[in-house]
Design a protein around this nucleic acid. Sequence first.
DNA 1: GTTCGTGCAAATACTTTGCAAGTCG
DNA 2: CGACTTGCAAAGTATTTGCACGAAC
Lengths: 146, 146
Amino acid sequence: MLGFIESSHELLHKRGYRLTPQRYLIIYVLEEAQGHLSIEEIVECVQQRNPCVSQSTVYRTLELLREVGLVRENHFLGEAATYEAVDGNAHEHLVCRGCHTVLHFDPALPANLREQLEQQYAYRALKLDLVAVGYCDACWKSSSAT
Amino acid sequence: MLGFIESSHELLHKRGYRLTPQRYLIIYVLEEAQGHLSIEEIVECVQQRNPCVSQSTVYRTLELLREVGLVRENHFLGEAATYEAVDGNAHEHLVCRGCHTVLHFDPALPANLREQLEQQYAYRALKLDLVAVGYCDACWKSSSAT
DNA sequence: GTTCGTGCAAATACTTTGCAAGTCG
DNA sequence: CGACTTGCAAAGTATTTGCACGAAC
């Protein structure tokens, strides 16, 4: 399996887009963060490495990457959007209401759910996007201590 | 089990908030729509019944209702936020990439997933928020016909 | 009477766009 | 050369806020 950056290059190319230095940088930042970055954070990280990259480029690139499916946009707890690199099919998130930590959980757990849904509702090419919101152990304890 | 409007009243009251005519109207509209409304649509529906209700009140009320958990905010396919009344625990959505229809599917399907997650990751009070994105039968056929 | 909620208008924040210049194949 | 990208600044949207008035407890 190719790395995220290589497969991005390939996919963009296949669709007639170029992997420009700006796009590379944005992809690189997303890949490196391995997590959920807000637009603001992305702009910050990118400009830290190359201050000439403009905000509009970040917006345009994220839209492009989302379009081709390389990047996923999340809205947890009603907060501002965050972005993350899409590696495979697994997008399972555990979000803590207390500390706002986002954990990626084992994609095997909901594995058969997809098949059930496809069969039962006659939907095709389903991608699951599962967010479980609750309290992690630490936050649960500290909140009940209050 | 109480209706949505009654339980809203109760919950707001318990938290020291009032169920004003404006709030009532917004809750009513959400309840009636039984679906996913954008802010714009909500404002429209509300003002249709009472033109004096201002946009800021709609914003403020949705934020309040979201805060107390009566309303859920969704972001499907990276589009603008939509809002829906929260009845129980079930928030399972099937979204079609083609026609953008949103279907609520059988909440029994992922039932044991929640328990698995709580046990395996030591999270408490988990609420699942499951979005499955794909193509409905009709859109799948028309897209493969192209 | 005191707290909560609202409408209005203004302010702020966020995102998109037009365009001229630059880059790449 | 022609298609694709970018930076900049301006335009456009969306959302939030301050404040004075009114309503509810």
